[in-house]
């Protein structure tokens, strides 16, 4: 049944608009999530790849928090 429906799918021309809409919904969710992050956290997480000591501390803190 689904196959039949898809085979005769009408209005494939709305695909462009539909797809762009899907993207904007998705993008808004991601952007909202990103914006919710606190400034000091942002700064802290940015140091992740740097020195090992910091990381241990961060790890410890994270562990305690949870």
């Amino acid at each position: 049944m689904l196959r039949q429906f898809l085979q005769n799918l009408q209005g494939v021309d709305v695909y462009g608009i539909l797809s762009t809409l899907i993207f904007f919904v998705f993008f808004s969710i991601v952007a909202y999530q990103a914006m919710k992050i606190k400034k000091e956290d942002d700064r802290k997480y940015c140091r992740f790849p740097l020195d090992d000591e910091d990381q241990d501390i961060q790890n410890d803190q994270d562990n305690k928090k949870n």
């Binding site: 993207f23 991601v30 952007a31 990103a34 914006m35 992050i37 942002d42 940015c46 790849p49």
Partner: peptide, 24 residues
């Protein structure tokens, strides 16, 4: 960041960068 010994500029931006890039 390792080579420059600097933190990454923005973690928020990296979230948007990652998801938008793989989606598009």
């Amino acid at each position: 960041p390792k080579a420059a010994n600097r933190p990454v500029y923005s973690y928020k931006l990296s979230i948007i960068h990652f998801w938008a890039l793989i989606f598009l």
